[in-house]
Each structure stands twice: as structure tokens, then as C-alpha cells.
């Protein structure tokens, strides 16, 4: 397979794995208004669950040696259970307060991964993580794994779209737009918010599991808050509230993030090569800002902004 094509397969695999987390965040933030900035924590739980369930104990690491499919399902269950556990105490918080609680949770997960070497390999990480469909379509350079990831994306996309367009999904939007009104109609906002958090986190867990399987090595360094920022950038840029937007955003943001490096390499003289990193970061920031400036609701977002402008002046009048 030609080099560029082989890189493209690799690039698409990474972007698709990210897009699953982005789809999960779309349910939480885009549809329900849950300000979850602990995405990296749920992603990490999925990744570690998959690794611990599937790694062979023969490698001398904490592993159970389960089949990969059980690992993928187990990762989703683990992330879901974890979301349930943290959701019950934290979901009574709203907006900024929920954000503070979730970022704390993400950092807690990362610290546990760093400090429990018996369970997670600690800072040395976990290696020899099995990959599903490894060896299928031999010599295709990872096309089989890409197909598997794309199937996962499709399944998550269809499942979430079905939920979003069901009566259940409309309650989520009602809660997002006006929680008091939704509650007055007899809908338990807490229960729906919790369901949204758990289901969205399961998608993030699946994303983490596929990442671990793809890279075959994980360590706490993979789960720093920058990951949460990337997933948020993908959702906001693609269009918060739209599943298709989450998919497109993942592709665009990951392209901006990685391809800009090559662009700068080609454009800069060798003398300035060492500064290319800083220039790339500036370029990433600039591109993200331009998109937000010219498409404030994202590439595929709803025309109407999430917060009604009309409610703001009415408060001023009062």
C-alpha cells in the first residue's frame, strides 16, 4: 500500500476513535447541557478496563486475558458504572459547578492510574495490549482495524440518533432549555441527566478501549486534560447538538492538529525547525478561533444558539 494511503488509514482510525468520544459528549452537552469537562477520565476508565481485561497474565502484568470483544463490552460497562458512581453525587450540581466536579474526577482517575502500579502499571504503563482483528486482511496496514472502528462509530451514531429523536431525547432537550419547566411537567430532571451522563460516558469508554487497542500501550500520560480540550474543540467546531457535527468536527480538528505540523515543516527553513512546535500551536489556536468566529454554532450546528438571546434583555427589563 502506498505511503500516503497508509498514513490516511492511520489518521482516519485516530479521528474515528476520537469521534466516538465526541458523540458521547454531544449527548451530554449538546443535547442535555451537562458541562462535562472530565472527558479524559471516562476515556481513561475505558482504556484501562479494556487493557486490564484483555492483557494476558503471562506478560507479568495485571491482566485477565479475556477475549477482545469481552474487553470492549467490559470497557463500556466500566465507564458506565463509573459515570453512575460519580453522577449520583455530582449531578445535583449545574453548569460551572458540574464542570469543576468533573475536571476533578478526571484528574483523580489520572492520579489513581499513576499511583496504583499493582492495578494500572503506574507510570510505566501497560504494554502488549491485544488488538481485535489483528492479522485480518494481512498486509493491508491496519485497514481491518479501521473497518472495525468505523463499524463502532456507525453503531454508536445510529444508537444515539435513535435515542435523540425519541421522546426520551426530547425530554433531554427540554431539560437543557428549561429544567424548571421540564420538572413541572413531571419529568425527573436528575434521573434523565444521570441516564444521559451514563450513556455518553459509555461511548467515551468505548473510545478509550479502541484507543488502547490501537496503540497497544497506555500510560497516565495519555489521559491528560488536553484530551478533554481536544474532544470539546471537536464538538464545538463540528456543531454542538448535532451528531453529524461531532463526526465532522473530529475529522477537522484532528486534521488541523496533526497536518499543520507537516505544513509548517514544509514551509519553514531548517534553521527555524526547532521553533516549528510553537508556531504549530499558534496555528491550531488561530484556525479554531477563525471557525468559531465565522461559524459560531459550528460547521453543522443548529442555526439557533443554545442560549436564547431573548431571555437576556427580558431580565434587564425586569
Amino acid at each position: 500500500m502506498s505511503g500516503v494511503l497508509s498514513y490516511l488509514v492511520f489518521f482516519l482510525t485516530t479521528a474515528a476513535i476520537y469521534s466516538i468520544a465526541s458523540l458521547g459528549l454531544n449527548l451530554q452537552w449538546g443535547r442535555t447541557g451537562l458541562f462535562n469537562i472530565g472527558v479524559s477520565g471516562f476515556f481513561a476508565v475505558g482504556a484501562y478496563a479494556y487493557a486490564i481485561l484483555t492483557i494476558s497474565p503471562l506478560t507479568g502484568q495485571p491482566g485477565l486475558g479475556w477475549p477482545v470483544l469481552a474487553g470492549l463490552l467490559g470497557a463500556m460497562v466500566a465507564a458506565g458504572l463509573f459515570a453512575l458512581l460519580v453522577g449520583i453525587p455530582t449531578l445535583r450540581l449545574r453548569d460551572d459547578y458540574l464542570a469543576i466536579a468533573t475536571i476533578g474526577i478526571a484528574i483523580t482517575v489520572q492520579l489513581i492510574a499513576t499511583n496504583e502500579p499493582e492495578l494500572t502499571g503506574g507510570t510505566n504503563g501497560l504494554f502488549a495490549i491485544p488488538q481485535p482483528v489483528a492479522g485480518w486482511l494481512h498486509g493491508s496496514g491496519g485497514v481491518a482495524f479501521l473497518i472495525l472502528v468505523l463499524i463502532c462509530v456507525a453503531l454508536v451514531y445510529l444508537a444515539l440518533e435513535r435515542m435523540i429523536h425519541s421522546p426520551w431525547g426530547r425530554v433531554l432537550v427540554a431539560i437543557r432549555e428549561d429544567e424548571t419547566a421540564a420538572s413541572s411537567l413531571g419529568k425527573s430532571a436528575f434521573s434523565f441527566r444521570l441516564q444521559s451522563l451514563v450513556i455518553g460516558s459509555m461511548a467515551m469508554g468505548l473510545s478509550g478501549a479502541l484507543y488502547a487497542a490501537f496503540i497497544k500501550f497506555i500510560s497516565p500520560q495519555d489521559f491528560l486534560p488536553i484530551f478533554t480540550f481536544q474532544v470539546w474543540a471537536m464538538l464545538i467546531l463540528g456543531g454542538s447538538g448535532s451528531s453529524a457535527g461531532a463526526l465532522l468536527g473530529s475529522l477537522v480538528v484532528w486534521a488541523i492538529w496533526t497536518l499543520s505540523g507537516g505544513l509548517i515543516q514544509a514551509a519553514l527553513p531548517a534553521k527555524l525547525q526547532v521553533d516549528s512546535g510553537a508556531i504549530q500551536i499558534i496555528l491550531i489556536g488561530l484556525l479554531l478561533m477563525l471557525v468559531i468566529l465565522f461559524r459560531p454554532s459550528g460547521l453543522l450546528g443548529r442555526k439557533r444558539p443554545a442560549v436564547h438571546r431573548s431571555t437576556v434583555p427580558s431580565k434587564e427589563q425586569a
Binding site: S219, Q265, S276, I281
Partner: peptide, 10 residues
């Protein structure tokens, strides 16, 4: 020379 941004995925 490529920058990894001290980030594994990059």
C-alpha cells in the same frame, strides 16, 4: 523534525 507536544497521540 516533528513536535510531539509532549502528548502521546500527537
Amino acid at each position: 523534525l516533528y513536535d510531539d507536544q509532549t502528548q502521546p497521540s500527537v
